[in-house]
Simulated scan of single mutants.
Amino acid sequence: MRRFALSIAASMTAATMAMAEGVVAPAEVEFDEYGAVTVSLSGAPGDAENGRLLMNKGSGNCIACHAVTDLEELGFHGEIGPPLDGVADRWTEADLRGIVANAKVMFEGTMMPSFYKTTGYVRPGDAYTGKAAEGELAPLLTAQEVEDVVAYLMTLKES
């Protein structure tokens, strides 16, 4: 029985490692000269429904700065960033992936957070302690969450 359990554990570990192999680490993301990212960060297709959820909660919270008519039932939408209606007609998937991962590559000086970045911060805080964070920082969104948000954004067409 123990040998069987070890065999299952080894199989699950191998499967997890195989899935993680397709993930591009934040420090390894390759932006083109304009800031686009042509390669999937997770190695898996994005889930537009989960991307829609991330637009309003958690580390995504895109509507804090952007208006999106498709999400009007969610209440307050910000006006700091441009409206996202029709964004799929204005940008390619690679452009949107680059913007979500780290908009500062494409738009130097933008206020938009870098959602898939773990280094190069001036002084990130440690939650609500008033102290600087220690150790390695996690990105605001995982590689798959970036892909999910991009998949949702690709559904936002003018027509």
Score class of each variant (00 low, 15 high):
Leu140Cys: 02
Met19Gly: 15
Ser40Thr: 11
Ile80Pro: 00
Gly130Ser: 12
Thr142Ser: 13
Val39Lys: 15
Gly125Glu: 09
Phe76Met: 12
Asp126Gly: 09
Asn102Cys: 01
Met17Phe: 10
Val24Cys: 07
Leu140Gly: 05
Met111Thr: 10
Glu79Lys: 15
Glu79Gln: 15
Val87Arg: 03
Leu53Thr: 13
Thr118Arg: 07
Asn102Glu: 08
Asp89His: 03
Arg123Gly: 06
Asp70Gly: 01
Ile80Asp: 13
Glu147Pro: 02
Gly109Met: 00
Glu145Ile: 04
Ala18His: 10
Lys131Trp: 08
Met154Arg: 01
Thr69Gly: 07
Arg90Asp: 15
Gly46Glu: 07
His77Met: 14
Ala67Gly: 13
Glu72Met: 11
Val68Phe: 01
Thr13Gln: 12
Lys157Arg: 13
Leu74Lys: 15
Ser42Met: 03
Ala133Arg: 09
Thr155Val: 04
Ala20Met: 15
Ala127Arg: 14
Thr119Val: 13
Thr119Glu: 15
Ile63Lys: 06
Gln144Ser: 09
Thr155Lys: 08
Ser40Asp: 11
Leu153Gln: 02
Ile99Asp: 04
Asp148Phe: 06
Ser59Ala: 07
Ala67Phe: 10
Thr119Gly: 10
Asp32Ala: 07
His66Cys: 03
His66Gly: 03
Ala88Thr: 03
Ile99Ala: 09
Ser59Gly: 10
Thr118Val: 13
Ser7Pro: 08
Gly130Asp: 12
Arg3Ile: 05
Asp85Gln: 11
Val105Gly: 00
Lys117Tyr: 07
Arg123Trp: 14
Thr142Trp: 01
Phe31Val: 00
Asp89Lys: 02
Leu156Tyr: 05
Glu136His: 11
Gly46Ile: 03
Asn61Glu: 11
Phe76Leu: 12
Val68Ser: 05
Ser7Glu: 11
Trp91Thr: 07
Glu158Val: 08
Gly130Thr: 09
Val24Asn: 08
Val100His: 00
Leu74Cys: 12
Ala14Leu: 15
Leu137Asp: 00
Val87Pro: 04
Arg3Leu: 06
Ser40Lys: 08
Met12His: 08
Ala14Asp: 12
Leu53Ala: 14
Met112Leu: 06
Tyr116Ala: 10
Thr110Asn: 04
Ser11Thr: 15
Glu108Ala: 09
Thr110Pro: 02
Pro139Phe: 01
Asp148Lys: 09
Ile8Gln: 12
Leu96Pro: 11
Asp70Tyr: 05
Gly35Met: 03
Tyr116Thr: 09
Val149Asp: 05
Leu156Asp: 07
Pro113Glu: 04
Ala36Cys: 09
